[in-house]
Design a protein around this nucleic acid. Structure first.
Lengths: 110, 110
DNA sequence: TATATTTGCAACCAAAAGGTTTCCTTTGCT
DNA sequence: AGCAAAGGAAACCTTTTGGTTGCAAATATA
């Protein structure tokens, strides 16, 4: 059973769960209330998120609150980061071009 | 058929393909040569990558070269970015704590 | 022209993913 | 004690995923 952060955030429902829990701790029912799927389905999504460390569970009486622990997202950030040049390069090129145009204009005294 | 960048990078083989193609354009056989799976399997992975715009195909004779177009990764970057505070906060807190200790020491003349 | 190379793609298969219903345990409340 | 609320998890089902083999089309080369 592959269980890494990349796979965890691949599902849109799980990304929504992360977003909800990041803003405030919630229990299963509260989370499930915002979706059309069953509590069990949400429970399984949360299980995946806890298994890869993006969420931790704090028990309080019969309730269990989900807390976001998003440090693990740095793995994603690092991976994407190594390719950042590939999509900033072209903007840099555009910027250089514009700067060039501008300095030419200055020379011409425009 | 869901076909978004999040899902595309969820598979480790596809991440490897991205990495290979990012460094230099390659054809299917060249890519497949680096994996234990069949050419067809790689072909399907590449298809997914092209369908979400991370790779484009340049035909040259009977060969087709895969070129990385990693701009789409900014979607991932943006999504992760909104949660960056959640894993930098604690380091900031630690830093503040250390600064506090240090200034106390200064007052004591240590 | 005949043959080898490169590739797309259909057909098929097993396993994983995402969902459901159902049942049980634990905890809170009256 | 007795009932309601919260939630873990088994059993099951359907679709998607990731893989295979096999074949056809297009291009290069002897």
């Amino acid at each position: 059973m592959r269980r890494d952060v990349f796979q965890a955030i691949a599902d849109p429902t799980r990304r929504q769960i992360i977003n909800m829990v990041a803003h405030q701790s919630m229990n299963v029912n509260a989370v499930a209330g915002n979706f059309d799927v069953s509590r069990t389905a949400i429970y399984k999504h949360v299980k995946i998120l806890t298994e890869c460390g993006l969420i931790v569970i704090k028990q309080q009486g019969r309730e269990r609150f989900y807390e976001a622990r998003l440090e693990k997202l740095h793995e994603i950030s690092d991976w994407v980061g190594q390719y950042r040049q590939f999509w900033t390069e072209r903007f840099d090129a555009l910027e250089n071009y514009l700067n060039q145009i501008q300095s030419k204009d200055k020379k011409k005294g425009k």
